[in-house]
Write a protein that binds this DNA or RNA. Structure first.
Lengths: 336, 336
DNA sequence: TCATCTAATGATAGCGCTGTCATCGTAGCC
DNA sequence: GGCTACGATGACAGCGCTATCATTAGATGA
């Protein structure tokens, strides 16, 4: 094991006091240029790296940004992570992740784990924290960003979009394309899914084409296979269904394959619309319509807001709405 | 901000010295039952949570397990993460991730970042570390597990499989099914991809069916759209190709869609085999053959090995080979 | 009964760093 | 020339915890 080099050793080598080395490293403009040069040389010569634990203890603050997401395997969240990572990887901040498994209680617990480290910032997915978690977030004396979603009452800052409105826009598209018997496919039915369903329902009702019997849902997590099963169940029960708004792209992909198996031409007999616009959607045959959500951008913006606040700069508006767009493709080309 | 409660305050409340509280928390069997009870009550009453930074500074060791993976969006790695998480979430250990972006230099740098925290353990993807990174790992005085892959020269412990052999098995399957002009589709071409290609090549040559002109690769990261493009290029240049071994499932899915567009029936005109066996493979139409890799299990095992070592238990064999299996499905049903 | 051992608890010091205030020297000014 | 003001550097203490050794009380045995 390489021996640990301390500030004191660097200081001795540079012929200054430890505190001056500390300053030279953190606020280089507060030490004389030649002093700084001697210190830099000593740091390089000894291969000094600061001890994050010691710093955290002395400052009462860790250079860690905690991220709470429901799932590590759902592409929707990993895209946000990638955005965060991109924006933070060259800074002094480390990211630490917690996976809530869509369980509010787990989220609350992980929040406690993070908070005891006195993180520099906190990023949480969604707006559905428990009252206790919400209180913890409000009392956390660090910037907090809620991502994935916008809502009426930010804890601090927010980057996301309205799932209700996005689903409504997709539904509007289906109706505009001429589908008159649209259905809904949903899995897991977590709060965001529910809000998408509400958007679908509101718009379908407005268009006079809503039928609760054409809504097929399951509490199970979504998957391609699950989408296939849901579509089969729906088409068996309600054969008049001529389009489906799927709660996410996996379900839509499964619906496409099942439509093939059932011999329903897409889009003529059945229109299919997904949600999130993962890369695979445009490559499918036929290409699948979806709602493009700016997940990577969400991560980048969230990281930037936190950085701005920590650096004392203006973080800009506290609520950023990254409006999604319906990517119309062949799978919703209209009924024949 | 909730005021921080310290060990000393708990000690005062319980009428013991701070060090006894520390012991009661870390090794409950070393304090009297009634003392312990008083301390537990005080901890609960005050809502005490230990400060990880102070502990790390005092012990010279952080309860953090560092994980280095190439990508946060590739399902292959996130499945491993989920396994790790499952096994470690109820322990005192936190996971900290670093994304190497498939760049050895980034891996080396992140290793330095992790090491300065004196992590309790380290998990790295693959066996292709730079010499400097390898040296760092060897000198790290903590358990190290290389995951995703097996190789001849473990730094410490290893959980994975032979990508060469797995690809060879898939190729053997194609040949056994009667395909005589198999091709290869590959993207990114990182070291693991290269070894899969080598496995394909070795087996195809052994069967007398290898043709380098039937290998279509790109340095670009893999995607469904990319798989479609690769298949189109291959079939245009080498129309006699009657099957493709795709380096991963995204490419296979893209190849399937492109085969549809080109009017090639799968599996009669074109057999398709993927790699990893993501969930979507079984749900496709036709269902896609793939090589099932035990990614979740890899994460679980890696975490267990590290825990065993840290707890002084026997970690079992230092090298675990989680042999993948070819999941034969309709997409390789054989040529007509 | 007394030395000896063991289990339980405590006192002390220090992990590596930074916040706070003190000190020093020098420039600028009347 | 003497004063203030300010920039650069340093001394000191302490963040919250644990390693180490010391101490105490009780158990054990001759």
């Amino acid at each position: 094991m390489a021996k640990r080099v301390t500030l004191a050793e660097v200081a001795a080598q540079a012929g200054v006091s430890p505190i001056t080395v500390s300053r030279a490293l953190r606020r280089p403009d507060t030490v004389q240029p030649d002093t700084r040069a001697r210190i830099d040389a000593a740091v390089a010569a000894l291969g000094y790296v600061p001890d994050p634990a010691a710093r955290a203890l002395a400052t009462g603050r860790a250079d860690v940004i905690g991220v709470l997401i429901p799932s590590a395997t759902n592409a929707v969240f990993t895209d946000v992570l990638t955005g965060l990572y991109d924006e933070l990887s060259e800074t002094r901040f480390d990211l630490q992740y917690g996976i809530t498994r869509y369980e509010p209680a787990t989220e609350e617990k992980l929040l406690g784990v993070f908070l005891r480290q006195r993180p520099a910032g906190l990023i949480v997915a969604g707006i559905d924290q428990t009252p206790a978690a919400r209180r913890l977030l409000e009392r956390a004396d660090c910037p907090v960003v809620q991502v994935m979603e916008t809502g009426p009452d930010p804890v601090d800052m927010m980057v996301g979009f309205s799932h209700h409105d996005a689903a409504a826009a997709a539904t509007r598209h289906l109706i505009a394309q001429g589908y008159r018997n649209p259905g809904f496919l949903g899995a897991r039915m977590d709060p965001r899914t529910q809000r998408r369903f509400a958007g679908f329902r509101a718009e379908a009702e407005a268009g006079g084409v809503f039928d609760p019997e054409r809504c097929e849902t399951t509490p199970v997590p979504s998957s391609v296979g699950g989408g296939a099963a849901l579509l089969r169940a729906l088409m068996t029960r309600r054969p008049e269904t001529d389009a489906v708004f799927c709660n996410n792209d996996d379900l839509a992909m499964g619906a496409l394959f099942e439509a093939m198996r059932m011999g329903f031409p897409v889009p003529e007999r059945l229109g299919i619309c997904g949600f999130n616009d993962l890369e695979m959607m445009h490559a499918a045959e036929p290409a699948l319509t979806s709602v493009r959500t700016n997940r990577f951008e969400m991560g980048v913006r969230a990281a930037r807001m936190i950085r701005a606040r920590l650096d004392g700069r203006d973080p800009g508006p506290a609520l950023i709405d990254l409006k999604p767009q319906v990517q119309a493709r062949r799978s919703t080309g209209g009924p024949s």
